[in-house]
Design a protein around this nucleic acid. Structure first.
Lengths: 245, 245
DNA sequence: CTAGTTATGTAACAGAATGCAACAAAATCT
DNA sequence: AGATTTTGTTGCATTCTGTTACATAACTAG
C-alpha cells in the first residue's frame, strides 16, 4: 500500500487537529471528519484505508456508527475512547472494530496499532477476496475478476498481460479518483504481499498505462477511460457497474 | 491422508513465515492466517486438517477463538504460546485444545506433536465412519482422491502420471493461492516422506505444469485452470467442490 | 503571443520469465 | 534384458516488462 489514507473522526477540533497532524508527520494521509455525514462522504469517495473513530461523538454514538459502517462497508476501524474500561473495549470489538485504543494514548502505540490493522486488512483481503466473484462493466467493456477475462464492447476477448490486468484492477478499485504513479506502482506490487517497492524506477507506469490504453481505448490518442491528470497521475474516468456472479 | 493441511495462525508475520516454511519443508501444506476471520475463511473452505493457534493474537484472544472453533467445528487444534506457565497450559486444554506447545519450541518437537495429533484425529475419525476419501470437482472435471482417477468433462478417463497426479493434489489443496515453484516442488516431494533433494534443480516444475496442462486444459495455450502468475509461480484458478464418497 | 520549461506519449531496445520441443536418464513393465 | 513410459534437462522461441531517448503537448514567465 502506497500511502495509507486514514480518516480521523472526532468531534473535538483540537483533538482532530492533533491526530491528523501527527499522522501526517508519520507518513499517512489524514482526513479529518467531525460527524457521520462527513465520514460517509469520505468513504463513499472510496479512498479510505482505515477509520480512527472516537467513541464519544457529541450527540452521535461512535459505536452505532461503527456498527453501521461495518454492516455496509469493508473498511478497517480502530475505535478511540477516553474510557479504557474493559467493558468498553469489549463493546468496541462487539460492534466490529478491528482494534481499540484508549485516550490519552502514546502516539507510537497508535502508529503501531494502525500499522498492524492495515497489514492485517491487506492480507485478509488477499486471502478472502475470491469469495465474491465480481464482474465489472464500464463503457461497454466487461472485466471478470474471477477469470480475469476482458471482453470488448463487441464481446471480443482481449488478452491483457499480467501487469496490465493488475493495473486495471487498481483502477477499477478507484474510479474517478486520480492516482499518483507511486500509488499505482505500490498497489500493483501489493498483489502478492509486501513485495519490494519497485518504485522510483522510472517511467514504467507511464508505459504500462500506454499499453493498457492501446488495448481498451477506442482511440488511444484521445483516452476516454484512462485519462491523465497532468501533474498528478492517472484517473479511471468512466462509471463502473459491478455485478456479482 | 495424503498431505496434511495445517493452518498456521499467528499475528506476527515473521513467526508465520518461519512456521509455514518449516512445515512445508517437512511435508505439509501450511496455510498462513493472521486473525480469526482468515481462520474461518480457510476452515469454511474445508481444507484444514489441523490448526496451530497462537494464544496471543495481538488483540484477539486465541483462547476465545479456540473455544469458538471447538464449539462449531471439529478440527484438531494445537495451541502455541510464549507463555509456558502451567496454568496457561491448563487453560489451553480447558478451552478444548488437543495439545499445547510453548514458544520458542524445538521444531522437531512441534513436528512430533503435529503428527501425534493428526494420527489421533484420523483414528477417531475412522471410528465414526467418516471417510476421508474425497472427490474433487472443478470446471467439469472430477478427481477421485481415493482411486486417483481423473474424469474429463465428457466423462472420459484421463491417465495422469504419478508426478502429474501429485501436482494436481498440491494444486487442489491450494486453490486460488499462487504457489512458487519451490513450494510446489517441496510439496510434491513431501508426498511420500523423504526429504527434498530435488529442488533448485531447474525447470522441472515448468515442464510438469505444461504436461498437466496438455491433459486437462481445453486449450493448453490459454490455460483457464492452471494459470501462471508471472514472477511468482502457478495458481489453480477455478473453484473446487469437494464431495465425500 | 513567444520562447523556454516541464510533463507525458511512445517507439525501440534489452533483460528476464515462460512455453515447449527434443533429447537423455530413470523407472517400470514384460 | 529389451521395450515402454515417465521425468528431468537443455536450448531456443516467444512473451512480458522496465528503461531510454526522443517527440509532443501543456504550462509559465515575460
Amino acid at each position: 500500500m502506497a500511502i495509507p489514507r486514514i480518516l480521523v473522526v472526532d468531534d473535538d477540533p483540537d483533538m482532530r487537529q492533533m491526530m491528523t497532524q501527527f499522522l501526517r508527520q508519520n507518513g499517512s494521509i489524514a482526513l479529518p471528519a467531525a460527524n457521520e455525514m462527513e465520514v460517509r462522504s469520505h468513504i463513499d469517495a472510496g479512498r479510505v484505508d482505515l477509520v480512527l473513530l472516537d467513541v464519544m461523538l457529541g450527540d452521535e454514538n461512535g459505536l452505532e456508527i461503527c456498527k453501521r459502517l461495518r454492516r455496509e462497508q469493508d473498511v478497517p476501524i480502530i475505535m478511540v475512547s477516553a474510557l479504557s474500561a474493559d467493558h468498553q473495549r469489549m463493546e468496541g470489538y462487539a460492534v466490529g472494530a478491528d482494534d481499540y485504543i484508549a485516550k490519552p494514548f502514546n502516539p507510537n502505540l497508535l502508529l503501531a496499532r494502525v500499522k498492524a490493522v492495515l497489514s492485517r486488512a491487506r492480507r485478509s483481503a488477499s486471502l478472502v477476496h475470491r469469495r465474491n466473484t465480481k464482474t465489472f462493466h464500464f463503457d461497454g467493456w466487461t472485466y471478470d475478476a474471477k477469470t480475469g477475462d476482458v471482453l470488448s464492447p463487441v464481446k471480443v476477448q482481449v488478452a491483457l498481460s499480467h501487469r496490465e490486468t493488475a493495473l486495471l484492477q487498481v483502477l477499477l478499485a478507484n474510479p474517478h479518483i486520480p492516482l499518483t504513479r507511486e500509488e499505482i506502482a505500490t498497489n500493483l506490487d501489493a498483489t502478492g504481499e509486501g513485495q519490494s517497492p519497485s518504485e522510483a524506477t522510472g517511467r514504467a507506469i507511464d508505459v504500462l498505462v500506454g499499453r493498457l490504453r492501446n488495448k481498451i481505448e477506442a482511440n488511444p490518442k484521445e483516452p476516454q477511460i484512462l485519462k491523465t491528470e497532468r501533474g498528478v497521475g492517472y484517473v479511471f474516468a468512466v462509471d463502473i457497474a459491478v455485478s456479482d456472479t
